[in-house]
Structures are given as structure tokens and as C-alpha cells.
Amino acid sequence: MKNKRALAVMAVAILFGLTAVMLASRWLLQQPSASSGRIVVAAGDINLGQRLTPEMLKLVEWPADSVPKGAFHDPQALAGRVLKNSVLLGEPVSETKLAPLGTLGGLSALISEGKRAITVRVNDVVGVAGFALPGNYVDIIVSMQKDAAPGASAAHEQNISKIVLERILVLAVAQEVSRDETKPKVVNAVTLEVTPDQAERLDLARSVGTLSLVLRNQVDPQPVTTSGATKLTLLPEDAPKAQPKPAPAAPRQAAPRVEKVAVQVKRDCVGVINGLQPTQECF
């Protein structure tokens, strides 16, 4: 009897102990960790240029030692702000991904300070077969007729293709600004981000010639200096063959100098006495 009573007491004690452990662990799991904090993340995928609402965001626990710089802790503080970069589900929303306060959204939110947006008409060839997507960088080539030099005839005009702008950011293709897709899109217009000076040059280039876009590596910032391509550089003529130089003429030798020697001619002479003066006559 005594053994059965002792076993019963031990079983009840173990049962209470297990219950206490389960309750304590559940309570601890429900309590926020001292080394974590709650930050605002995206509740779904959000494209750049969109105005944020509290419904697009949510609060999640985040380790305190890895909280992104500029993270927010209240979704209401982001109401009305505009994204300048796309945000994926669960990604923290920080100040670096937002346009300045007062931005109304749309394409204007994506333009950097001091820059402008200009749209050029393209086709499947000019637009690099649709691979010039938002976020890519392109060079711009203009093909035009080069004016003749002052004083030269109109026959001296020639066609030329020249890179006029380098490393220009593509902001949008047609009406799409999303930078998450990699599939080519054949469109009829591309919007570029340029400085005011570049906007003037680009507008002149498209009015005097034909534009082409050249896709370039995103991490290649090196400028390139070219002289342009013309018909002469595209199909250079054969250089004329060099004529053999005539052999140098041998120096003329001076003719030998002939000295004239007086030859004495033997003549007959007679003496003539004229009065007191004697003379001599030769013949």
C-alpha cells in the first residue's frame, strides 16, 4: 500500500511539473525578446513609384542587432510616402527606399535631383530588341549628315555616326517603370534620365538625325572617346603604291683644264738703219 501511495504522489508531482514547464514556455514564447524590436516591412510586393498606405505594411519582430538603418516602427508614419525602389514581401521599408517628403508619386518620384526625364521614340532595332529595360544604362548614337567645312562645296558633306551621350539611365519603357522583370519588351518609346544639358543635345540629335540605343554594362562607368564613323573610315580606299625613287645621278666630273701654250714662230728679221736710229724688221 505504501509503495502504491508513493508512486501516485510521484506521478501527480511529475504531471504538475510538466504542466508548469509547458505553461512557462508558452508564456516565454509570447513575450517579446529583449534583443529584438518591431519594424515595418512590406505586407506584399510593392512597385516603385507607388504611394504607401498602412494596409500595404505590417509590423514584425526583427533582431535588434540587425535592424536596417532608417527603418520605421510605425506604419502610420509611412502613410502617403512614395517608393523610389521596389520592395518585396517581408522586406523592411527604410528611408533610403523612399522619395523625398512631398513627392506625389509616379515617374517624377524616380528622377534624381538635378536631372530631367525625356522620352525618345524607338523601335525593335533602336531599342536593342527590347532589352533596354528600366534600370539599365545605354549610350546614344546619332547618325546624320555632317556639314561641309566653311568654303568647301556641298560635295564634301558626308554621313557620320557618333556617340553623343554615354551611360544614360533608362527610367521607363512605354508606361512601365518596374525594374524587377528581365524579359525583353519591344516598345515604341523609352524614357531616359538626363541632365538639362544632355536633354538639349538629345533633342537636337533626334531632330537632325536618327537615334540608336547601345546597351552597356551596368557596372562599367568608363567613358569612351571616339571620332565617329564615316564612309571613309568604314570602307577605307587602298593607299597608292609608292613609286620607286630614281637613282641619284652620278656627279659630273670637271673637264680637264687645257692651258694654252704660246708657240713661237720663227721669222726672218733684217736690220734697218734710219739715220741714226737702228731698227729691226721681221717678216
Rank of each mutant, 00 (worst) to 15 (best):
S153A: 02
S112C: 07
K146I: 00
L165G: 06
R51K: 14
N47W: 03
L48R: 15
A148K: 09
E113Q: 15
R167W: 01
P63N: 04
G90H: 10
T182I: 13
V164G: 06
I111C: 03
R38F: 02
V173E: 12
L101Y: 11
S94K: 08
D65F: 02
S178D: 15
E176P: 00
L59C: 05
V173L: 03
A174L: 00
A174N: 13
P63K: 07
A172M: 03
A174H: 06
K58M: 06
L78C: 07
A152N: 01
E181G: 04
R116I: 06
S153K: 12
N85E: 15
K146L: 03
N136C: 04
A149K: 09
G102Q: 12
F72G: 01
K115C: 12
V164W: 06
P54H: 11
S112Y: 12
P150V: 01
L104P: 03
V138H: 09
F131A: 02
I141R: 05
A79H: 13
A148D: 01
S153D: 15
A42G: 14
R167E: 08
L89V: 13
G114N: 15
Q145G: 00
Q158I: 01
K84P: 11
N136V: 01
I160P: 00
W62N: 06
S161E: 06
Q158L: 06
A77R: 12
I111Y: 08
V173C: 02
A77L: 03
V138N: 10
M56H: 14
N159D: 06
V138S: 08
V93P: 09
A43R: 08
L171N: 07
V125D: 13
G49R: 12
A132W: 03
L107H: 12
Q158K: 08
E95M: 04
D74E: 04
V93K: 05
S66K: 14
E176T: 09
A152V: 00
T53G: 10
S86Y: 11
A174F: 02
V138W: 09
E157V: 05
D180P: 00
P134D: 01
V142T: 14
A148M: 02
R179E: 07
G135K: 04
L59G: 03
L48C: 09
V41E: 05
R167D: 06
S66E: 12
L101A: 13
M56P: 03
V87Q: 09
P68I: 11
F72H: 11
K84Y: 09
N47H: 11
V173Y: 02
S86W: 13
M56G: 08
N85Y: 14
K183C: 07
L104H: 13
A149T: 08
Q175R: 14
G130R: 02
I141H: 11
G114A: 15
A79F: 03
V122A: 01
E91A: 01
K146D: 07
P68D: 15
E91D: 10
A109K: 09
G127W: 02
V120P: 08
V60S: 11
G80F: 11
V142S: 08
N136P: 00
A79N: 14
L57V: 13
A152I: 00
V142W: 11
A148I: 00
I111L: 05
I140D: 04
F131W: 01
D45Y: 08
S66P: 03
I160L: 03
G114D: 14
V126M: 10
N85T: 15
K115M: 15
T103C: 02
L165E: 13
V82H: 07
F131G: 00
S178I: 05
L171I: 07
R116S: 09
